[in-house]
């Protein structure tokens, strides 16, 4: 069976979890086996995972699972995988998923691949799967040579698809160890889609001259329903908060649309954004390196172009 660990946040499943179930379903089909989902802690929506292809949903309930401790979660997921006879375990490559993958590989004596972005290829018993490496500049194909395989799926790599109906939710008895990590506070910025999950991103750099000029960037983001990001010097100068910094030393993202305003396109910046599906570059310098990797480009002054683009987006939204 393919077992998908479906992460939820206070009971609600994030898009990454639905992507993982869809991925698990398709992988299971390829292997001619069943896909099941595993849910830890309290949620009312577990049955919905059936719609994305889980034939069954297993739920482990225990108060210790309300907070994340990778040691506890890994012990429970590994136990569940063994009990249920899983041959492939699928995680999301989220902050929690990243803390779990390596632990599960060790516990299940499994080959692991982090951050895959495409379905596996199964030919004649060989199980092969791809992932981007060198910050998206190459793709590596791995062969997994172990009975159990553990994979984490990058966000936005495949779209969630409705493949079935609500699934029965069954409790699973698994010993839950005592957490050794004590969670004191969880702080999330409310109301915006976090960068790693964002499908649309509007990003700006030093070309904006100063923090006081970010209004036009925010307006464009708002018109699109996009999340804002920035280049590193902008975060370093405290023009924008650190969590907006994308690139090699910041966050790596892969949105459907990345709009770069007044960013030169240094290699370290591109390392974090070149997996975006579509890149739009707005820069007054036609020689800016960013244009080399852009799909669409506007050579012009941001202070001029961005308000115009916002206006065009608003008109478009009003008529669609």
């Amino acid at each position: 069976m393919v077992l998908v660990f479906a992460e939820h946040q206070k009971g609600k499943f994030k898009k990454t979890a639905l992507e993982a179930v869809t991925f698990g379903y398709k992988t299971a089909q390829m292997l001619g086996i069943e896909c099941a989902a595993l849910v830890l802690g309290a949620t009312d929506y577990a049955t919905d995972l059936g719609q994305y292809g889980a034939a069954k949903v297993w739920q482990v309930s225990h108060p210790a699972l309300d907070n994340f401790d990778s040691q506890v979660y890994a012990a429970v997921i590994a136990d569940a995988a063994r009990q249920l006879g899983a041959s492939v375990v699928v995680l999301s490559a989220t902050a929690n998923g990243k803390s779990l993958l390596g632990r599960l590989a060790v516990r299940l004596d499994a080959a692991s691949v982090a951050g895959v972005n495409a379905l596996p290829r199964v030919d004649g018993g060989a199980f092969r799967i791809q992932r981007p490496v060198f910050s998206g500049k190459a793709i590596a194909e791995y062969e997994l040579r172990s009975e159990v395989k553990v994979i984490s799926l990058t966000g936005n790599a495949i779209a969630p698809e409705v493949n079935g109906q609500s699934a029965p939710v069954q409790p699973l008895e698994v010993a839950v160890p005592t957490p050794r990590v004590r969670v004191k506070a969880v702080k999330r910025i409310e109301g915006i889609v976090p960068l790693p999950e964002a499908e649309l991103v509007v990003s700006a750099g030093r070309g904006m001259k100063g923090p006081e000029n970010w209004g036009i960037v925010e307006e464009l983001a708002e018109a699109l329903g996009a999340t804002t990001a920035c280049s590193r010097p902008v975060a370093d100068a405290h023009w924008r908060p650190h969590h907006e910094h994308v690139g090699q030393t910041g966050i790596a993202i892969r949105p459907n649309l990345y709009i770069a305003i007044g960013i030169s396109g240094a290699i370290q910046h591109l390392a974090g954004v070149n997996n975006s599906k579509v890149i739009v570059v707005i820069n007054k310098d036609p020689e800016a390196p960013f244009f080399k990797v852009a799909d669409y480009g506007v050579v012009g002054d941001a202070f001029d172009v961005v308000p115009r683009l916002t206006e065009a987006v608003r008109n478009f939204k009003a008529s669609h």
């Binding site: 990590v181 004191k184 999330r188 910025i189 960068l195 999950e197």
Partner: peptide, 9 residues
């Protein structure tokens, strides 16, 4: 963590 931070001991 996605969209925020977690403080632990």
């Amino acid at each position: 963590i996605e969209g925020g931070a977690e403080e632990v001991e």
